[in-house]
Structure formats: C-alpha cells, structure tokens
C-alpha cells in the first residue's frame, strides 16, 4: 500500500524537478531533458496509482495511456532535438538568444 504512494510521490518530485530545470537552465538540451523528466514523473503517477487496490488486478487503462504518452513524448523530443540542432546551426549556440529564457 504505502510503497505505491511512494512511487506516486516520486513522480510528483520528478515533475517539480523538471519544471525547475526547465526554467533555470538556459541550454536547450537541458530544457528538452527537463521536459522528458517531467513526462516520466507524470507517467509514474499514472501507473503507480493504478494498483492501489490490492484485491483486484491493476487497472490497465492508465498503462495504455502511458504507452500512448511515451510515443507522444518520443515524437516531441525528436522534433525538439532537430529544432535545437537547426538553432545551433543558425545562431551558433543552443540557447535562446536574449535573456528572456522562458
């Protein structure tokens, strides 16, 4: 029972950590990774809470949702990485140019 909530809390922690890194670090690769860490956090919350009830099988709908989510995350990450490479080619660094980083 309790370790399930431990995983869920870990998910929340990853989510928060992701937001922190997304805002604090200027490097685009770090921002992209931060988004991925946030994704993992959300997935962990989704999956861990699915098996709260010990008497029955874990609910499988969240599992399917996570699989869908992973594919979405992979697609978005791929697009983001290519965009980052293009930006690097155009302005010579993988950062937003001015100080208003996101």
């Amino acid at each position: 029972m309790s370790n399930i909530y431990l995983y869920a809390l870990l998910g929340v922690g990853l989510f928060i950590l992701g937001i922190y890194s997304l805002i604090v670090y200027a490097n685009l690769l770090r921002k992209i990774l931060a988004i991925n860490v946030m994704c993992t956090g959300v997935f962990l919350v989704l999956v861990s809470l699915a098996s709260r009830n010990h008497n029955v099988q874990p609910d499988t709908v969240p599992h399917a949702m996570v699989i869908t989510g992973i594919v979405v995350a992979v697609s978005a990450t791929a697009l983001a990485l290519i965009l980052m490479l293009k930006i690097n080619k155009a302005i010579g660094k993988s950062e937003f140019p001015d100080k208003d980083c996101e």
Partner: peptide, 19 residues
C-alpha cells in the same frame, strides 16, 4: 510540490467499474 503530494495522497478510492 506540497499541493501535488497532498492531492496524490488524499486521492479518493477509485470506482472499480471500468476495470
């Protein structure tokens, strides 16, 4: 973080209808 953790821990028992 505190709000989210509280929300996760206090989440009501799910309806078992869908499974």
């Amino acid at each position: 973080g505190v709000v989210l953790s509280y929300a996760v821990l206090s989440i009501p028992d799910p309806a078992q209808e869908l499974p």
